[in-house]
Design a protein around this nucleic acid. Sequence first.
DNA 1: TCCGTATATTACCCATGGGTAATAAATAGT
DNA 2: ACTATTTATTACCCATGGGTAATATACGGA
Lengths: 268, 268
Amino acid sequence: MGNIRTIPSQCGTVSDMDARSPSPPSPWLPFASRRRARDEKREAVLRMAVALFLEQGYHRATLNEVARRLNITKPALYNYFRGKDEILFECWAIGNELVDDCIAETSSGGGSGLDKLRKLLLLYAELMTEDYGKSLVRFDIRDLSEDNRKIVRTAKRRIDRAFRDYIAQGIADGTIKPCDPKLAAFAIAGSLNWIGHWFQPDGAMTGKAVAEEFAIRLTEGIATTSKRKKADKPPGTSKPSREDRGEHHARTAPRAAGQSKRTRHRLR
Amino acid sequence: MGNIRTIPSQCGTVSDMDARSPSPPSPWLPFASRRRARDEKREAVLRMAVALFLEQGYHRATLNEVARRLNITKPALYNYFRGKDEILFECWAIGNELVDDCIAETSSGGGSGLDKLRKLLLLYAELMTEDYGKSLVRFDIRDLSEDNRKIVRTAKRRIDRAFRDYIAQGIADGTIKPCDPKLAAFAIAGSLNWIGHWFQPDGAMTGKAVAEEFAIRLTEGIATTSKRKKADKPPGTSKPSREDRGEHHARTAPRAAGQSKRTRHRLR
DNA sequence: TCCGTATATTACCCATGGGTAATAAATAGT
DNA sequence: ACTATTTATTACCCATGGGTAATATACGGA
């Protein structure tokens, strides 16, 4: 019946949406040999859902379409999730765990406040170029249940605090110029979050390249010592190498196992 | 029947929505003496709509609710607009005209590239603290008709170009350090656009204060000469004066008259 | 005072899409 | 093989909300 078509798009500084990741594969063969690990399929639903939600927007995306792209039908999804909003929440939750990984990795490594801030910037920025990272800033908290909304708000505060703490720490140890940590964090996080709105993997720069550029640029203004890798000349306007980009740091793979903490509702 | 309640909220660095402007007044008296200028009422619909769209999100907000808050009924709205998506577009269009004003004001005033960039930053940032400004970055382009979508994309490119041009100009005249104008514009605009996501008028800072802070901070990193108004001490973490905030620069009032150019469809 | 126009209202249509009930197919265990 | 369990399917329900048709009310002008 309803034949939905994908929508064109384009980047832009002010806003503009739409991220067409090449649409993840499905573990469901077209109505034939089934029975693979439950978690694997649950995972596949989320990967497909997050891609579709980003591509079309949560409200325009239908569960029918999510299911169709997985070679199954809508009611099958209810074996793994309570409803659409729970799928949205789980997508967000995965992104949130990835951010936690970033923070943990940053905190464990030593260095000055500025060093840590730069490290977090780098990891966070790169995350913003991936689907689950984008879900953190593109999804609307108001689409969630009241309970999940509370969880999200708490998590956001945690992330915010990480940025502010590093800045405050940098001011204390003299690597960052005196400034208001709150506002500085807002300014920096704003830039980073916006990456999730304009970055498209098929652009001129890789996610890693964008992340590295932003990590330097956003700390130039508040660092007490300037630090440019390649002299002061205009940094090559693009790093089109695109090299490997394989396994930049624990991601996707390790996720499959050990769904870990949080309110992971096991159904039935 | 359906009794909709407003939703709680809170700011946050990562995302978080919801802007509760005190809900604009309605020119429709509760089903009594009517007949005021048509444009005035059209304007009122847009003001109420933009506030509701920001408060609840476009898809959750209903035309019934827009109408109810205006003391009218849904079909009455169709005297002024073709449909919901056109209302959304018109909200965006007003915001866009305000940005154009910012650019025009900046371009007309002289100064170095850095001066112009700072000026535009200041005006743009302040705009992001207001409803129509927020609509530029919070509304989803995919909710528009194909025609209007094209218009929006073109306009966004124009704005983007303004930022890049000033940066390039600054590099040329030596007031801005050599850098990639495209990425620098993305970083700056990202910070500014994000204001539209977290700023709430009832917070600790006024829109003007936020704008001034960001205008300085975001140019510190790329300026060839540092420029801090109040020495280098931590700038008062808040400017709680809240003074007048009256008529910061042509806005709202002048808008009422002369709907001006663009595809303003006169109905019937 | 009566009419025409603009602008409301009430009452409805209906497409969309989230969600559910009943049932069928596949697999694992014994 | 037979059965229990999981995991699909088909067929349906129904609340929501954008949009429309028919009609009523108010106002300006002659």
